[in-house]
Design a protein around this nucleic acid. Structure first.
Length: 262
DNA sequence: ATGGCTACGATCCGTAGA
C-alpha cells in the first residue's frame, strides 16, 4: 500500500494537479488537507472517475480534510470524538487492514496567541484520541499536516526560526507526545537527504532557495513501521505552475505477512 | 527592509496560512 498525505491548499484550485499526481504517483491512499470547501463543493465525481473513493469532512473557506482510497473506505469518523471544535480538521477511515487518520493540525499563528493555545489544546486532544485508536487498531497510520517541524534538521534555517511558531519547544513536545502513544515518524525510519522539506513559502522564491520546513508527516504504529519499505517527500508537484505550497509525503507499506529485511 | 505570495469571500480590502 502506497500511502500519501498532501495539503493541497484548495481542492478546487488544485484538482488538475491532484489528478495528474494520482496518475503519475499511483498511490493507494491519500490524505488531503485544506480542502477549503464544504462537502457540496468537493469534486467527488471527478475523483471517482480517477478511481478513488472519498471520505470527506469539509468546511467553507477554511480547513477541510479527506481520505482518498482505491479500495472502499469503511467506518469513517469525522473530527476528534469528545473534543468540541467548529474546525473540520480530522477524518478517519479503515482501508483494507489499516486504520487511517488524516489530520490538519492548527497553524498556531504566533507563539502566545489564542490560536497557539488552541493548537496546544488540540494536540493534547489528538494524543488522547490516538491512544484510544491505537488500542483498537494496531495497524494505525496518522498522516497529515502537523504544522510542527519536529527537529532542527527539519528546518532550513534553525537560527532564524528559533522559538517561532512551528518549532517552539511546547509544539515540539506536543508533537513528540504523539509518538509516545506508540507511533513512529515513517520519514525517519530511513536515511534521508539533508534538507528535505515538505512546505515552502510562496514568497521570496522560497522553493528555489529550498527555504522550507518538514511539517507534513506520516506516523505509523509499530506493526506498520515494521512493514514500511520506504518513505520520502515527492517534490515534483511543487515545481508545477500554480502549485500548493506543500508537497506530498509518501510511505510504502508491504503487504501483511512480510517482514522487513533490515 | 518585519515586506515578499496565494486563496477565499466579499468587494476593490481583510483574514488566514506558515
Amino acid at each position: 500500500m502506497k500511502l500519501a498525505t498532501w495539503n493541497v491548499n484548495s481542492i478546487r484550485v488544485r484538482l488538475p494537479q491532484l489528478l495528474g499526481w494520482l496518475a503519475d504517483a499511483q498511490p493507494d491512499v491519500v490524505c488531503l488537507q485544506e480542502l477549503k470547501t464544504p462537502a457540496e463543493g468537493y469534486p467527488r465525481a471527478e475523483l471517482e472517475t480517477a478511481g478513488f473513493a472519498s471520505a470527506v469532512n469539509g468546511q467553507k473557506t477554511y480547513n477541510g480534510v479527506a481520505i482518498l482510497s482505491r479500495a472502499p473506505a469503511a467506518a469513517a469518523v469525522a473530527d476528534i470524538p469528545g473534543f468540541p471544535d467548529e474546525q473540520r480538521r480530522v477524518i478517519a477511515a479503515t482501508i483494507g487492514d489499516v486504520r487511517v487518520i488524516c489530520v490538519y493540525c492548527p497553524n498556531g499563528q504566533s507563539v502566545g496567541s489564542d490560536k497557539y493555545d488552541y493548537k496546544l489544546r488540540w494536540f493534547a486532544a489528538l494524543r488522547e484520541y490516538l491512544a484510544r485508536e491505537l488500542a483498537a487498531h494496531p495497524r494505525l497510520a496518522v498522516a497529515g499536516d502537523f504544522n510542527v517541524a519536529p527537529e532542527d534538521r527539519d528546518v532550513h534555517d534553525p537560527k532564524a526560526w528559533e522559538g517561532q511558531v512551528h518549532v517552539s519547544a511546547p509544539e515540539r513536545e506536543a508533537w513528540r507526545a504523539l509518538l509516545e502513544v506508540g507511533l513512529k515518524d515513517s520519514f525517519r525510519l530511513f536515511d534521508q537527504p539533508e534538507k528535505t522539506f515538505s512546505w515552502w513559502d510562496y514568497r521570496s522564491m522560497a522553493f528555489r532557495r529550498n527555504a522550507g520546513l518538514r511539517i507534513d508527516q506520516i506516523l505509523l504504529s509499530a506493526e506498520l513501521s515494521a512493514r514500511c519499505a520506504s518513505a520520502g517527500i515527492d517534490k515534483a508537484p511543487r515545481k508545477l505552475e500554480r502549485p500548493s505550497d506543500h508537497a506530498p509525503a509518501v510511505a510504502e507499506l508491504r503487504a501483511d505477512g512480510k517482514t522487513a529485511d533490515r
